[in-house]
Amino acid sequence: MTFHKLSRWLLGGMLTSLLVLRGDNALAHLPNVLRAGEVFRVPDPLLSFALYGTFARADEVFEVQLQPETPLAVPIEIMVPRQDSLTNHRPLFAIVGKGLPKPSATELAQLPRPLPDGMGAVLGRYEREDREILFESFSRRVLYTNGVVAYVLPAGDVRMWVWSPSGTTGKFVLGFGVEEGKQDFGNLISNWGDYAY
């Protein structure tokens, strides 16, 4: 095959790939930015989300709210960029809602806020001391994960709190669901600084 012919094939392939693998067809976690002190409301708990936040101070709490119509089983994990400076950064999350178990005294003491009346809570945990490492294909970064768990969320008012029990600061990502969202490249480009470390 001549160089001329080969280059035509490659060019044709690249142009087609742009048309076929358009952003709106690529399924992924929908990315969004969490800010301390603001509530992020999940618009559709049947889609997946990657929620990016940064602890600037030790006492910050991030809150996510969702309203499943029925109890909902969903994979949830918390991740941290794999960087030397974040070796000890282990943010934690709690799922708070009606019908969840009443936390033990130890767990209550760990929560960053008092439980609302009538609500129970489930706390996330780190399965392994050395933490699993994964490659996140959306931001193309390597992350530590606490170990993804399929939780059953109750119907109605559900909240997730993220805090830093050891008072460490730095970035984290709260992963929710499995890749079910259509990619939003506008959001991706405008918030790339938050998504990629």
Binding site: L27, P71, A73, V148, E179
Partner: peptide, 26 residues
């Protein structure tokens, strides 16, 4: 009646190998 649709045979978990691994771990 819990919605487990993600994890059912036709669910989003099984669209690819990566998602399947995450779901099985979870």
């Amino acid at each position: 009646q819990t919605n487990v649709s993600r994890f059912l045979p036709e669910g989003a978990c099984w669209g690819g190998d990566k998602g399947a691994r995450v779901c099985e771990s979870s």
